[in-house]
Design a protein around this nucleic acid. Structure first.
Lengths: 375, 375
DNA sequence: CAGTCGCGGGCATTCGATTGCCCAATTGAA
DNA sequence: TTCAATTGGGCAATCGAATGCCCGCGACTG
């Protein structure tokens, strides 16, 4: 178990289970209707305001003009009763829920929380809610989550597919019922896509390490099942093939910390000379790889320059800090939501693919020249 | 801007926006009803099976026995039409949605994705969906998210409150309408709570560093607004007061990487002697702190032992690997969901507080004796 | 053999909000 | 002054599924 190497565990056992102090039991609570109080409905508001429910509805969702004094009465009644629309009722009638579903492949990869936050903010600005699901890197689970979302009548789905092929069917089927936007990763389906130019990302990185005089450039990535990784790999291959001095080598696994370490171990065990630059398909791999290099006494960047992709916060606190490429998450979020809305209003539009540009961020894992410890 | 010290950015500009190849336009798609096909309803199934909708309903949600041949016909019709229950309709009638809402304070803190995954798994086992929201560390936003969840008729809410006091009102108000379980963090409200014994966590850490001969033990934490941090601080204070040899010092900020670095900078600038152990209120702080120590040429653990809390994966790939305390996220998830269900079935139950035990994980940030680089 | 019971299917109502339609009242125009 | 147009409120149907109630039929019992 490589993950626990060099660590010791001191377990402590036992759990306590207390009644909450100051709460003597079920009936001892002085607050009446503490649980399960029937909610206030539109009818209640209407009755109190002395109007018909339809009038109340029109005031509160102002769908049609209502005489000012009645409107005021309704609004006041709503305030007094603390009326909250029942979104379920509204959704049933309107056939839309004001909610967008999102499926991410792995919420524990720090890139995705960042993207989720960006999308959440963008949706919130539009008054839309977000129903977030994690596919746990499993296309089956992903399909299941999509199904759940559709049954809940989400108005749209934003998804970053787990698998380039095995996710396709579920996404196509979802796209038949609802607006779908793919973000970052994508499969071949008739949906809008907001992507990042992965070829450019790899280009920036290879240009950078090449400009530092590195020629033996290895690439640690996951297998081709992830669309972005496939694009990165293709770009890497094209680039390396175009430079006859350069020497490439690819290690394909997954996008985890663990694999970064594993790949380096394999690499070091091989009889071939070590590369002088290591392009990693994301920051996690890079972090795992750097740890293993450290263990092996290989110096970064002196012996090997290392780069990541995603610009997660952890690339800024490792030793040395990680050169990486930033994917513009905020822009991805804004554009994805914009596309979703556009298409909701006009479902006939042709699907579009928007490709955004990444940004190279140079830190000490590739250059020794930088500032080290600022005062 | 401390976060970008020692880094250079090479921006690239431009974005491309292409029509998806192979899709000539709105009407060019051969698939009929590619978008917005009316969904199959229970009536459709019933009609096809030649029965009344109520019968179909009884078969599909088997709420009452139906003659086998009819049942078979209904099931087949459902299969043929690919019928999916409309959860909105069901929710309206049943007055429950089969969905649990969850609000986390900061999804970009890697502890929370782990807990979310655990809870998601536990809910999934019960056939329940999860509606996840991020409060972005803002009690106002948190209250807003709670309101959204309630309007969507979630059957329960699992929340880890942002603020010990400022989150309380919203949580109490939510608890009046729906079952609420607080996890990890908590506020004073009449709800079930699944917590981790933070006093024990601090105890384990202080015992550990004390056993290594350290006596000048500083504590970097966030302010008291986070309940768990407040408990940790109280435990730290009690512990330090009980040992007259020990020398304490507290740095209060927030739970971020950034604050870890900031606190160390403050610490180093002070005229007082450096501590020989640094207890950090979570792994993020510890990572930030270790980086700053490294910049300052302070050796970990030789000069200062450093510990975190949460056992996030990043504590395993930093240099040196981080001694920490693991919160039992899986157990938290299981228990939280169990409590939720119990209380849904019996709303009269007295609120309970379950306190789980953390586990000490010793790594090289406190001990030099461990294995370094395994072959 | 009459009476009772249970089974199972269908009818119609309900959940809460929205909206098409009708109609009364008011306004405006000719 | 008369008629048309506009405004605005109410009625009732609707979204999709679930369910209380009734009823017919067959089985069983005394």
């Amino acid at each position: 178990m490589p993950a626990t190497e060099g660590e010791t565990r001191l377990p402590t056992t036992g759990a306590t289970d207390d009644p909450v102090p100051g709460d003597a039991g079920p009936a001892a609570d002085g607050v009446p209707g503490d649980t399960a109080r029937r909610a206030v409905t539109l009818r209640d508001v209407a009755r109190r305001a002395g109007v018909h429910p339809s009038t109340a509805s029109r005031v509160l969702s102002d769908s049609r003009p209502v005489r000012p004094e009645l409107a005021r009465a309704v609004r006041q009644a709503a305030r007094e009763l603390d009326y909250q629309v029942n979104q379920i009722g509204r959704a049933l009638r309107r056939q839309e829920s004001g909610t967008v579903g999102m499926v991410v492949p792995e919420i524990d990869n720090p890139f995705f929380p960042e993207m989720v936050q960006a999308i959440d903010r963008a949706l919130h600005r539009q008054g839309l809610g977000l129903f977030l699901c994690d596919a746990n890197n499993d296309p089956e689970l992903e399909a299941d989550r999509l199904r759940v979302l559709l049954r809940r009548q989400v108005d749209g789905v934003i998804i970053s597919p787990v698998h380039r092929e095995r996710s396709a069917e579920a996404i196509r089927s979802a796209a038949r019922e609802v607006v779908v936007v793919q973000v970052d990763r994508s499969v071949d389906a008739h949906t809008d896509v907001v992507a990042v130019d992965q070829g450019q990302a790899i280009g920036l990185l290879i240009d950078h390490v090449t400009s530092l005089g590195r020629r033996r450039i290895a690439f640690i990535t996951c297998d081709d099942s992830v669309s972005t990784a496939a694009e990165r790999l293709a770009a890497y291959r094209a680039r390396m093939a175009g430079d006859r001095d350069a020497l490439g080598r690819v290690y394909a696994g997954d996008l985890s910390l663990r694999w970064g370490g594993e790949a380096v171990r394999t690499m070091m065990a091989a009889p071939t000379p070590l590369p002088d630059a290591l392009i990693c398909a994301n920051d996690l791999i890079a972090l795992g790889a750097m740890q293993r290099l450290r263990w092996a006494g290989v110096r970064v960047p002196d012996d090997i320059a290392v780069t990541g992709i995603d610009d997660t916060p952890f690339g800024r606190v490792c030793e040395p800090e990680l050169t990486t490429v930033r994917q513009p998450v905020d822009q991805i979020g804004d554009e994805a939501v914009a596309m979703l809305r556009r298409r909701q209003h006009d479902p006939g539009l042709a699907p579009r693919r928007l490709t955004l540009s990444p940004e190279l961020i140079i830190r000490r894992s590739t250059t020794t020249g930088g500032i080290h410890a600022p005062s």
